[in-house]
Amino acid sequence: MSSPSYYELYRGSSLGLALTDTLDDLINDGRIEPQLAMKILSTFDRVVTEVLAEKVRARLTFKGHLDTYRFCDEVWTFLIKDVTFKLDNQTQVTADKVKIVSCNSKRPGEA
């Protein structure tokens, strides 16, 4: 089996969950085959990654105290405390604790 080229992590987003539930219902009703559902989800993985990279222009900045960080298997994890996010429209959002998990956006073999 070849290694997947796009992360499946957006399947856990509310959009991904809604899509998965819908596909389950379609399979259950016999309207599509499971293979098609798999194909749709791999397209979702690709498209959501591309759209987030290319179309989203919203920006935010944040400040906080970096409590812990680690880098393992190409995944960075940051645990930040007392975080203030500043959004585009000048609104501020605060949080006591934030965990940032960041995966390499380049596919294996790229760059």
Partner: peptide
């Protein structure tokens, strides 16, 4: 394209 296929395509690749 084969790389993203869900089936086992290793021999073809």
């Amino acid at each position: 394209r084969l790389e993203v296929e869900p089936q086992d395509v290793k021999p073809i690749l």
